[in-house]
Computed example of a mutant assay.
Amino acid sequence: MTRVLLLGGTGDALRIARQLGSRHVYSLAGLGKVPDDLSCGVRVGGFGGSEGMARYIADERIGLVVDATHPYAAQISANAAKASGAVGVPCWALRRQGWKPQAGDDWRMVGDWAELTAALAPFNRPLFTLGREPLAHLDEIPPQQFWTVRCLDTYEGSPRARILATRGPFTLKGERMLFSAEAFDVVVSKNSGGSATEAKLEVARERGLPVVMLRRPELPAVDREFASVADLLEALQVSG
């Protein structure tokens, strides 16, 4: 198989990495736990933008870049497409489908942080499931609100915020327990898709809670797109 540079950090990416042999490289930004049970090489840290990634691809004789990063990791996806194009190496991407609202859902779509905070104005106890971004805004919490922020980072928090340092997958039972204990009145989410974090949406639906949903960013065109891990892995075997 052509030497693969797999850009990851998601559960889907880890599933792909577990199928790669020692010639290939799994690249992580460095947040969260670094897997230690893979046959492929593991690289941790940034590349220095698209130019640095292009140099790495050329120096390491990478023959295929596979972007399996988070659907909201727009910058690294852009860097991957630009870098691979600069050195004439194909770029594939796993583009997981987003969730679709169901009967009983109350989704409030927003495009950025300003729209998000405006949408939260009527509420008192939001649950943030955006990752670490809310940590940069803890000094902006409105007087009537208490935030719960679920992310990978440990953080001291503030008098009016609780930081839950944990990672998915999250079960329906566990989410029901959390929502009952904390009395959230709104959920803040990215439209990440997949099953690992979908249970919060089901619980919000059960409890009649609105969901402030951050729209997906536009991602660059690549040589091939895949909607599932299975399809991508099949293509990797064929390409080998």
Rank of each mutant, 00 (worst) to 15 (best):
L172F: 02
G168Y: 01
S180V: 04
G174W: 09
K190N: 03
K190I: 15
F184N: 01
P169R: 04
L152E: 05
E175A: 13
E198P: 01
D185I: 12
D185G: 12
G168H: 00
G193M: 10
G174Q: 06
A183M: 10
S195M: 09
L178C: 11
T154C: 09
E156V: 06
E198C: 12
T154K: 10
G168A: 10
R162M: 14
V187K: 08
P159G: 08
R162S: 14
V186Y: 08
L152M: 12
V186T: 04
V187T: 07
G157D: 05
A165R: 04
A181Y: 00
A161K: 00
P169D: 11
F170T: 03
Y155G: 03
L172T: 00
S192T: 13
G194K: 09
R176V: 03
N191V: 11
V186F: 10
G174A: 15
E198S: 10
R160T: 07
S158F: 02
A161H: 02
N191M: 11
A199P: 00
N191P: 00
A165E: 00
A196I: 07
L164P: 00
L178S: 04
T154P: 03
T166Y: 05
V187W: 08
S192V: 10
F170G: 02
P169W: 08
Y155H: 15
E156N: 07
T197F: 07
L172I: 04
A161S: 15
T154L: 09
V187H: 10
M177F: 13
A181V: 06
D185Q: 08
A199Q: 00
S192P: 05
V186H: 11
L172Y: 01
R162V: 12
G194N: 02
R160K: 11
T171D: 07
A199D: 02
A161Y: 03
A165L: 08
